[in-house]
Design a protein around this nucleic acid. Structure first.
Lengths: 208, 208
DNA sequence: TCTTTAAGATACGACACCGTAGCTTAGTTG
DNA sequence: CAACTAAGCTACGGTGTCGTATCTTAAAGA
């Protein structure tokens, strides 16, 4: 049985440098997405990348290093650019970005890291400092801070608790349902939880 | 080197029935708490319980079965009993129960199951149906439903989104900080997120 | 073209866990 | 006390990963 990656069987060329590194990165992300962080192995990554273990050990010493490297290289740079017009729309959009990550191997790998973080806080710290922070991936936090700066929402309402609501609710949904919430659900999270928390409850006016 | 559990070295008695099962349950929970669900192994559980693999295979066929069995046997039966007087206090208390679980091996094992759930929805389903639901462990949901029934909060505000807020925020905090939130933090979650979401924003009166 | 670099292939002993088998013996039951 | 049940022990072949070593050779640079 030939268990090498389809794309690599019969390949006669020999990849070097960034071509090879990219292939290894992709392999690491796919492995993490499918098998979790604890399921990563040098053998598995090498097999999927269609390369030899020796090529891996030449650059990294443990599988987690490859994964963090891979995620840093491929994590989408967040471009918040809220038009500062439509708070509700911008909040939903920032959650859509997060939710759509869940459909992507990269996002699944990210969730795998988050899952492992419950047991391995060190991994979470590395993910935050080596991937998440450099790429500015903060989703609803970015939007809320932006609007607060502009004085469009009460800055006192934008706390380290409230900026986490969106991510927390999406994470919980993913845990419970095994998939990312759809757009309707995200809109409900914004309307029923985030907006009320920042003092802009859409229902508040209708009541009383 | 003798790597058996301290309590079992030199033990001359031979445990049978529920004594033995309890020891195996404890071992499975500790193993899951320390090594995660994917780190469970029949060898590891047997070693920690100070018993033989054969005694495990006599009753279970895979480590996950032992863990779910163990969690079912030891999961705290939730006794909500909200006095129906202090909504805020009851909400905080229900989150304290959840947060304190995180300090316990059983709770850590539960988090390990939740972590694995992101990759293995089947495990999550089994945990829900075989452990969580039978034990009625629903935390803030229980409190909110109770108060809504009594007409003390708007039933339209108690949705499948809002009942999850507490658990979601505690889960997110645990992921981010590697430990459970303290009481102050839980109070802030209640004040800044849950109460506003059910239309009882503590700050709303002071504003405008 | 010649030299240098590194990718690729293969093999190695070590280790951990798998699931099962065969046996001894402690604990329970009659 | 005798018979039975099941706990405990040891060992087995098989598999997968580990990290390293050795060698060949393609690709890049001079």
């Amino acid at each position: 049985m030939d268990d090498r990656n389809e794309e690599t069987v019969g390949r006669r060329t020999r990849r070097r440098g960034s071509d090879l590194v990219d292939a290894i990165h992709q392999a690491a992300i796919l492995e993490a997405a499918e098998n979790g962080v604890s399921g990563l192995s040098m053998e598995g990554i090498a097999r999927r990348a269609g390369t030899a273990k020796t090529s891996l050990y030449r650059r990294w010493s443990v599988p987690a290093d490859i994964l963090l490297d891979a995620m840093y290289s491929h994590f989408p740079q967040e471009t918040p650019s809220p038009d500062a017009g439509d708070l509700r729309g911008d909040l939903i959009e920032s959650l859509v970005i997060l939710a759509e990550l869940g459909e992507d191997p990269l996002g699944r790998a990210m969730f795998a890291v988050i899952a492992e973080s419950l047991r391995d806080p060190g991994l979470h710290e590395r993910f935050e400092s080596e991937v998440f922070d450099p790429k500015g991936g903060r989703f609803t936090r970015t939007v809320l801070l932006h609007y607060a700066e502009q004085g469009r929402i009460d800055p006192a309402r934008v706390t380290d608790v409230t900026v986490d609501i969106g991510e927390a609710m999406v994470l919980k949904y993913a845990v419970d349902h095994g998939r990312s919430p759809d757009r309707d659900r995200l809109a409900r999270i914004v309307d029923e939880v985030i907006l009320p928390a920042i003092g802009m409850d859409p229902r508040a006016s209708r009541e009383q």
